[in-house]
């Protein structure tokens, strides 16, 4: 298990490091919101999911897309604006999609995919599926009205959904304490009748263990659950750089998070030969994805008009 978690974490870290490295060359035609430091959240939860389970995420979505099984080649090509991208070059880094592995969308507007996840969960329940939905969002999203509305409806209908708040404490440059009268997000959630718990230290193993237990409860029909995972964004809100010089947060604040880096922690739990093999394979996969994106063509001009609407209706009314 350590090896597979390490591979998942390292894959995201390595991909994003490469993204940051080449970003200044301007070959990536998309704003990127790096997940470096926060990989544990997507990995810890997605490792407990089934392929047919569904996730919705945010514009900081590389980690989730990869952790749920999205194609790395299609993601990098998407960032390059190439037609081989997961959205044919029309969505970019903030709108990743991979229905074939249950990644049903990521949004550039905070909080926006939360009710979409709830609706998907309603459809699963309606069809008596034993799959579930996980909705990922940040601490800022919990301030949006749609968050409270979505919790209420999910609890009212006892839907098979896990809400995961990835709390990195900052909405762009503004700390949670400057935005929320009470920073106890779990208390606000339990008021809606949804059991909630907090993982305080970005601990991927603890998260894996809790997610395994919680998703089992959800599948058993016990209704929605909520997890808040405390984590930390190492890089700037958007872009390839560190931003501690801006002064809104300090390197001292970041230090404990960097020291407890879950990628390093898991690396140390995996036997060296296995670890080295994972690192070799992942590095090759990453370089291969960038080569693929580089070599892929841009979309034709005819693509501009394609897919505004789905033309052929396919419903069983006829």
């Amino acid at each position: 298990m350590y090896a597979s978690l390490y591979r998942a974490l390292y894959r995201i870290r390595r991909l994003e490091e490469e993204t940051a490295r080449i970003y200044p060359t301007d070959r990536i035609k998309s704003p990127v919101h790096l997940s470096i430091g926060q990989e544990a959240v997507a990995v810890g939860v997605c490792a407990t999911l089934q392929p047919q389970d569904v996730v919705f995420g945010t514009y900081r979505g590389h980690a989730l897309y990869l952790a749920k099984g999205g194609s790395m080649k299609a993601m990098v090509a998407e960032m390059f604006g190439k037609v081989t991208g997961c959205a044919r070059g029309k969505g970019g880094s903030m709108h990743l999609i991979a229905p074939e592995v249950g990644v049903m969308g990521t949004s550039a507007v905070v909080g926006t995919t939360i009710p979409n996840a709830v609706g998907y969960a309603y459809a699963l329940r309606y069809r008596e599926s034993d799959s579930l939905v996980v909705s990922f969002f940040g601490d800022g999203a919990t301030e949006e009205g749609v968050f409270a509305e979505s919790l209420n409806f999910a609890a009212l209908k006892q839907l098979p959904i896990l809400f995961v708040c990835e709390n990195n404490q900052y909405a762009i440059h503004t700390h949670q304490a400057r935005r929320q009268a009470t920073t106890d997000i779990c208390a606000r959630v339990t008021a809606h009748g949804i059991p909630a718990e907090r993982i305080t230290n970005n601990d991927v193993l603890r998260l894996f263990e809790r997610s395994q237990a919680i998703t089992r409860e959800i599948r058993a029909g016990h209704g929605p659950r909520f997890l808040e995972v405390m984590t930390y964004r190492w890089f700037e809100h958007v872009g390839p750089n560190k931003d501690f010089q801006l002064g809104y947060r300090s390197l001292e604040e970041a230090q404990p998070w960097i020291e407890s880096d879950q990628v390093v922690r898991l690396a140390n739990l995996v036997d060296r030969p296995v670890r080295e093999q994972i690192e070799r394979e992942v590095t090759e996969e990453v370089l291969d994805a960038f080569r693929f994106a580089e070599a892929s063509p841009f979309p034709n001009a005819t693509e501009l008009d394609a897919d505004v609407f789905k033309e052929e209706a396919a419903c069983s009314l006829i």
Partner: peptide, 16 residues
């Protein structure tokens, strides 16, 4: 909850 229920409708439609 017009906002969330519209989003919910979208999620249902995404699910078929």
């Amino acid at each position: 909850s017009e906002d969330a229920m519209t989003g919910t409708a979208i999620g249902m439609a995404l699910a078929g």
